[in-house]
Amino acid sequence: MAGNQHMLRDYSLPFAAWELRLYLNSHPNDRCALRLYHQLLASAPCATYAHTDLNCSSCCDQHVFGALSHMDDAACPCSSNLSDLMNGWDCACDQGDCCPLRWDWVEDPWPWDGCCGSCGN
């Protein structure tokens, strides 16, 4: 594999997705960013794990380069299995569904909240 493609697969795409995560934490209602994030997520892990025997079929092909150059209005594909593989976080939208309205990673509760959060109120 050429050096550029290796960098794109192993470093650039996961990095771009990560950068969007941080942005979404302070802009959770930015749907354009959310959609691009899910496009990257759908492509990067397939490419990242292509050398394993894990089954990642159609989702990667059309999005690896497309996600970086343009965003269309098509529903973003999003496989929770693949996003789990990439970073260990749950995918925010169901398979075949469109992107959600909001970046729900920021929603309460968080694991440490317990009854310091809203329970019992």
Partner: peptide
């Protein structure tokens, strides 16, 4: 610092940047 943060955006950001 995550434990006392009142807003979920702050909890998310501190978690993610702390991880990075």
């Amino acid at each position: 610092q995550r434990y006392h943060m009142p807003h979920p955006e702050a909890k998310a950001m501190l978690t993610d940047i702390g991880t990075e």
